[in-house]
Simulated assay, not measured.
Amino acid sequence: MNKRPLSLEVMISTLGSDGIKRVAAMTLPQMAGVSYLVSWQTVGEDSLLPEQLEARSDVRVIRTASKGLSRNRNHALDHASADVLLIADDDLDYIPQGLKAVRTAFDADPDLDIGLFRYSNGCGGYEKVYPQSPVRIAGHLPKDYYTTSMEIAIRREGRSGSLRFHEEFGLGAPVLKCGEEELFLLSARRAGHKIVLFPVDLCVHRGLTTGNRRVADRGVYRGMGAVTALIYPLTFLPRFVLAAWRGKKRGIMKFFPALINFIYGAAYMALRVRPFGRRAAD
């Protein structure tokens, strides 16, 4: 008896009229078994859906009045229907072979809960360090590697299908404006989910992600501080000093503002946030 190939749904989160125009400009290959779900935050707007998206039978657009990127991603997760779900932003160009590789990875390993893949910069290179062969993620992440949301694929009916992004973290959150993907994976690792990092190109992202651009928003520092304190509860203070020094050396942050806000984020998280849920403690 032939097993049905797993279906894949690419969940694109976007905001406002400019965001939906970026989605319309994305490269979204039309492939059997692959569909696209766009979670579109339209706060205070009455925007029309671009014709390029409306004409696609493999694209489904759902609107939400919520605020914050993590809420937007959770809205997509709550409405997704495919076997495998891929987190996505609104400025990517997908590669057919990459989408096929995601389905193949989950088809080949029924125990795989989360697959992590790779994006390129469109110039033949990468913006961060990746291992050269597949790596099982059980404890800490590989040296010099950090996770980006658009690299994460989830088996919907598996253990990770019930995971959600913490809504106190990420762009649009009140205090902790990054770190939602690290916390998402930390929750999965703590629960014993099987996570494998595959060095396979999934898409092209042109431009810098948060981890590679100059940091000016104190909320980003605070999110980094909160997540670092969660992952390294015994050594987070010296790690703050080292991260601030390295950031200053790279020219992407100022030492003392970074250090102060790292500490603020860790304290805020300890006093105000339940880290392994969706929302802040009452």
Rank of each mutant, 00 (worst) to 15 (best):
G44E: 09
R250V: 04
F276V: 05
S7T: 15
A188F: 01
L8A: 05
L28C: 07
R246F: 09
L48P: 09
P142F: 08
I252C: 08
V273S: 06
L48G: 14
P50G: 05
E51S: 14
A153D: 05
T148D: 11
G277M: 09
H205Q: 12
D282E: 15
L49G: 06
L116S: 01
V135N: 00
F169Q: 00
A188I: 02
R250G: 00
E9S: 08
G251Q: 09
Y145M: 10
Y126Q: 12
V23R: 02
L15Y: 14
V241F: 13
S120F: 02
L186V: 01
D282Y: 12
R73N: 03
T228K: 11
L197F: 08
P29C: 10
D217Q: 05
R159M: 10
R279M: 14
K177P: 03
G219M: 04
S187H: 15
A173V: 00
Y268G: 04
G211Y: 09
A138R: 12
R60F: 06
R246M: 07
V215H: 13
M253W: 02
R56G: 00
G115E: 01
P142R: 05
D90L: 07
M269L: 15
N74C: 09
V61L: 09
L86K: 02
L15H: 13
L237D: 08
T64V: 02
E167K: 06
Q30P: 07
D111M: 12
V227W: 03
V273F: 11
L237E: 14
S7M: 11
V204K: 04
I87S: 09
G192P: 00
R272Q: 12
V241W: 13
R190M: 06
Y146H: 14
L176R: 03
V227G: 02
P238Y: 08
L176Y: 03
K177Q: 13
T104Q: 15
L230D: 05
G115H: 03
L69V: 12
L92G: 00
Y232H: 15
C123M: 15
D144L: 14
A280S: 15
I87P: 03
A244W: 05
A216M: 12
E182P: 00
P238E: 10
A243G: 07
D78G: 07
T27L: 11
L234I: 11
N74Q: 08
A280P: 10
P275Q: 10
L234Y: 14
V129C: 12
E167W: 03
P174N: 11
L259N: 02
T228L: 13
G44K: 13
W245G: 09
Y126W: 13
H205G: 04
H75W: 10
W40A: 01
A25K: 15
T235Q: 13
P238K: 04
V196F: 05
L234V: 12
A266G: 01
L171G: 05
R164V: 06
G277H: 13
G225A: 08
P257E: 07
V227T: 12
D107W: 11
D107Y: 11
A76L: 15
L6W: 01
S162K: 14
I263S: 12
R155M: 10
R214H: 10
L230H: 04
T27C: 13
L171M: 13
H166W: 10
V135S: 00
A191H: 11
A281N: 14
P5D: 08
R159F: 05
D107V: 09
G179T: 01
K3C: 11
